[in-house]
Design a protein around this nucleic acid. Structure first.
Length: 297
DNA sequence: AACTACTCCTGGAGGC
DNA sequence: TGCCTCCAGGAGTAGT
């Protein structure tokens, strides 16, 4: 499920390959996947040249040498692949179907032929992904309308910013608060579990109840987990389960497996309608800020 | 304002 | 083998 690290690593791959290329054809087979809030249409990017590929939260921002701008959201199961013939030049997102699958796949819904023989394919088993066409000047407003929170990897994301975002949520579980894109933008189910595990925080702790020490730890671990994933390969769990011998992800997908720190069997609960894996020992309800590992060894 | 429940989809897994 | 049910989850919306 593409979260911030998957979108960011994919963005970098795409940027390397398609910036400077010109769009020859733009086709999206499912009308419901096209969002055109203004006067611009998908066809308005035909003939345009890619200038830059940006990212905000889990949105790709494709900028061109004209005002028409394309946002892409992969939601749960979208993937982007750039091919020249059978050769894959860039790929990212949900790994099903496999990135080397012959395209178009029956779940391929977007096809953008570029000059230089390249094609950008969008495949999405669940059809939740979206192509959003906006005027360049309306992009900031689009995100503002969604009240997207701070980006966790920019300097504006401080401990204080995190504290302010969580403060209104007196009853909401910290897990639910971190999934809410208006608080922090870009985290999803996997990396919230990872950040809470690394921070030794129980997912049901009330968001506004964190001590200053816990907030500082959570702030550090959110950045650490995201940065690690971007640097070392992303956490995709095609079958919803992690490889038992892998040490990443360390929490999500490890339900019923031993905690990598203390050996306790990892538990799974539902929080905000999402499967949430955590260690009952390391992430106890204690709000003392004491690290359970100091006792476990 | 804060929070919950539901919706969109389909493939894969597990039960019998 | 073959049904059937359940599960996975980002984000928008409606309702409490």
């Amino acid at each position: 499920m593409p979260e911030l690290p998957e979108v960011e690593t994919t963005r970098r791959e795409l940027e390397r390959v398609i910036v400077g290329r010109r769009v020859v054809t733009a086709y999206v087979g499912k009308p419901k996947m096209i969002v055109e809030p203004g006067s611009l249409r998908l066809t308005d990017i035909v003939g345009a040249r890619f200038q830059a590929i940006g990212r905000r939260a889990k949105y790709f921002i494709f900028s061109f040498d004209r005002p028409a701008t394309l946002l892409v959201h992969l939601k749960l199961s979208g993937q982007l692949v750039v091919r020249r013939g059978d050769q894959t030049l860039a790929a990212g997102g949900h790994p099903v179907p496999r990135f080397d699958t012959p395209l178009p796949h029956r779940a391929t819904h977007g096809r953008f032929d570029l000059d230089d023989g390249l094609t950008l394919w969008m495949t999405d088993i669940r059809q939740f992904g979206r192509f959003i066409i906006l005027d360049r000047s309306d992009v900031d407003g689009y995100f503002a309308d969604r009240r997207l929170g701070v980006e966790p990897l920019v300097s504006e994301f401080t401990v204080d910013a995190l504290a302010q975002a969580l403060a209104p949520h007196r009853m909401l579980p910290i897990k639910a608060a971190l999934l809410d894109q208006t608080n922090v933008a870009g985290l999803g189910n996997i990396y919230v579990d990872e950040a809470l595990f690394a921070s030794r925080l129980h997912p049901l702790r009330a968001a506004a109840s964190l001590t200053p020490t816990e907030l500082a730890t959570l702030h550090t671990e959110i950045r650490s987990v995201l940065s690690y994933a971007i640097q070392n390969g992303v956490a995709e769990l095609p079958a919803g389960k992690v490889d038992p011998d892998s040490n990443f992800p360390r929490a999500h997908g490890r339900f019923s497996l031993p905690c990598l720190f203390c050996g306790t069997t990892m538990a799974r609960i539902q929080v905000a309608g999402r499967s949430t894996d955590y260690c009952p020992t390391c992430q106890g309800q204690s709000s003392t800020g004491k690290n359970p590992h100091e006792r476990v060894g």
